[in-house]
Nucleic acid binder design. Structure first.
Length: 605
RNA sequence: UGCCUGGUGGUGUAAUGGUAGCACAGCAGAUUCUGACUCUGCUUGUCUAGGUUCGAGUCCUAGCCGGGCAGCCA
């Protein structure tokens, strides 16, 4: 079933302060096309917070027939790796697949900015191409063969030329101050900084020095290129910010071509410009950088329309850690099974957990876009997952912690074929056969020798319905010498089967079961929240709050039809929760299921 | 105590000078061959103080309380 078709038709089109701005620009016809971008640095895995940014940027592009470029913000080779380029690209494609992949802007493989004439002036421009226009006949996955993400490193030549322009205009200078001295000269938020003694070098000397920086004449940190703005500015980022630093480090995309690298503030605004970005959307910590973003663009006399930056507040879900530094600790200290551990809020982890992309999208879009620092209740996410899966997941019978139940009035080799509904939420539900035999397994939680009040399940002398089968009555509890329960002996009332005269007979409890002989064993991983407190990131000792019971592994018994499950399937194990095959550890004949999420349980209060 | 920015039920979000709405969570009930889903009902909110106005969550003033910013990280 197509997940998109399950979206309630009543869902209003998202609206927020950024979309309002875009809508106004569209009404004014300010831009020929709305172009946004998602610009991660390839130095780690994407997480649920990035998912919000992805959905915002791709969503705006999609709603306005525009485009959203995937761009690696790769200006710091020391921290980056192609491993992350690949994982980020895969994660983005997974998240937007079928929803916004037609607005995904990629570039023809190896493309770099080309000179163009704009408004009678020479300019560089790398026209963004939507992935739908990049399809090659050799690839049925769209652009994958012919195209790749944009990279800030694609623009290093052009960025260098822009830096030269700034120097020629007397707007940038080469500084000989060491990193420590630069820091001391900067002052503090409430005290102005001091001007560097090298601030007023001649254009010729700056040009010479900057070219020699590029040529590799100086060691790391010996010199830097700085914008000449205002050391007394109340905004720290306007106190002659660094534009280039020397780093004799090979780069994952450009190899050893460069030994100077632009910093974020210089590279980002110009990368946006070069791609024709109209709305550059980032998180609020960059708010204080916006004047610098504008300063660089405005001081270069660029001929085309300039991008503008807009900021929104990050998504922080409760019971989760989204700080990259802390995620690294969880992975490095082996508290989890790698970056795609199903308990992690990484996109790779959520995907491996079995969470549909549509549910992730529904959640992050549903939380809205504001500038307010909030903590979003994880229950909202859980609700979105259940809502998607309730509509689409096939129901199956599975017993997580089996206890044997013997139907004494059935013959040992007798099989009664029962009819089970695949999904009662379907307008015209389909069915499948399940086999009822003399020996079955039921959930150990569904039996209590000494039942608590209002216990609807199996108890001594009591009756329950085996779902899709019949009502059974508990006659005898068989124990071994140590007192452990070996089996429960029951009588089946076959007249209560579906289609039989007494099928309408009501009993309070209905429980799930599988045949002992016609079922398959499987490893099932029961995941729970990774942290025990709502805001594990609030304090430094977040590792104290790791939930020791975040993973329980059981050997379950599954109805035999589950033997042919694929990793694309999502199931509801009735009365238990939603499950999917683990894409990494499952093997043919040796299935491993992950619990995506439990069913809502108002009884387990 | 510099600059930027924000404050609406428990949580998140809407209302763009005119009935404070929606979702999640919670509670109560109905229904149920999933203690699910569904349905019904309920509880709970405009940071404070002044001002403008017929009318203020919204505009103005002052205050209070958050968040962000001092990497040659992004």
């Amino acid at each position: 079933m197509n997940a998109e078709s399950n979206a309630p038709s009543t869902a209003p089109a998202p609206s927020d302060f950024i979309r309002d701005i875009v809508a106004q620009h569209v009404a004014e016809q300010r831009y020929a096309k709305i172009v946004t971008r998602f610009p991660p640095e390839p130095n780690g895995y994407l997480h649920i917070g990035h998912a919000k940014s992805i959905c915002l940027n791709f969503g705006i592009a999609r709603e306005n027939n525009g485009q959203c470029n995937l761009r690696m913000d790769d200006t710091n080779p020391a921290k980056e790796d192609v491993e992350y380029v690949d994982s980020i690209t895969a994660d983005v494609r997974w998240l937007i697949a079928g929803w916004a992949d037609h607005v995904l802007g990629l570039k023809p493989k190896g493309a770099t900015p080309a000179k163009q004439e704009v408004a009678g002036r020479e300019d560089y421009y790398l026209a963004p191409v939507p992935s739908s226009d990049l399809k090659s006949e050799t690839s049925d996955r769209g652009a994958s063969a012919a195209a790749e993400p944009f990279f800030a490193s694609d623009y290093f030549d052009q960025l260098y030329a822009y830096a030269l322009t700034l120097i020629r205009k007397g707007k940038a200078y080469v500084d000989d101050l060491s990193p420590e001295e630069t820091d001391a000269y900067r002052g503090s938020p409430d005290k102005p900084g001091r001007e560097s003694p090298w601030r007023n070098r001649s254009v010729e000397e700056n040009l010479d020095l900057f070219q020699r920086m590029r040529a590799g004449e100086f060691p790391n940190g010996a010199r830097s290129l700085r914008a000449k703005i205002d050391m007394a500015s109340p905004n720290i980022w306007l106190r002659d910010p660094l534009l280039y630093r020397i780093r004799h480090t090979p780069h994952h995309q450009t190899g050893d071509k460069w030994c100077i690298y632009p910093l974020y503030d210089f590279a980002h605004c110009l990368s946006d410009y070069l791609e024709g970005i109209t709305h550059s959307i980032c998180t609020v910590e960059f708010e204080v950088h916006r004047p610098l973003y504008d300063w660089i663009l405005e001081n270069l006399d660029l001929p085309r329309a300039l991008p503008r930056q807009y900021e929104f507040a990050k998504l922080i879900p409760s019971y989760m850690i989204v700080s990259k530094r802390r995620l690294i600790r969880l992975v490095d200290e082996k508290l989890v099974d790698g970056w795609d551990d199903p308990r992690l809020p990484t996109i790779a982890g959520l995907r491996r957990r079995g969470i549909p992309a549509s549910a992730l999208r529904r959640f992050v879009i549903g939380t809205g876009v504001t500038k307010y620092d909030s903590l979003t209740d994880i229950a909202v996410f859980e609700h979105a997952i259940r809502e998607e899966l309730n509509a689409s997941a096939a129901r199956r019978l599975a017993v997580l912690k089996p206890i044997k139940l013997v139907l004494t009035n059935l013959a040992p080799d007798e099989t009664i074929e029962c009819v089970a509904t695949n999904n009662p939420q379907d307008p015209t539900p389909t069915t499948r056969p399940v086999a009822l035999t003399r020996e079955v397994f039921i959930e150990s939680d569904d039996f209590a020798e000494v039942p608590p009040p209002k216990y609807f399940r199996l108890k001594p002398g009591g009756e329950v319905r085996l779902k899709y089968a019949c009502i059974v009555k508990l006659d005898e509890i068989v124990k071994d010498a140590s007192g452990a329960i070996v089996e429960l002996r029951c009588t089946a009332d076959l007249t209560t089967r579906s289609g039989q005269p007494n099928s309408d007979r009501k009993v309070k409890g209905t429980i799930h079961w599988v045949s002992a002989t016609q079922s398959v064993p499987a490893e099932v991983r029961l995941y729970d929240r990774l942290f025990t407190v709502p805001e594990p990131g609030a304090t430094d000792d977040f590792l104290q709050h790791v939930n020791p019971k975040s993973l329980e592994v059981v050997t379950a018994r599954l109805e035999s039809s589950l033997a042919s499950a694929t990793t694309a399937d999502r199931f509801q194990f009735e009365r238990l929760g939603y499950f999917a095959l683990d894409e990494k550890d499952s093997a043919p004949g040796k299935p491993v299921f992950n619990r995506i999420i439990t069913l809502k349980d108002t009884w387990a209060k």
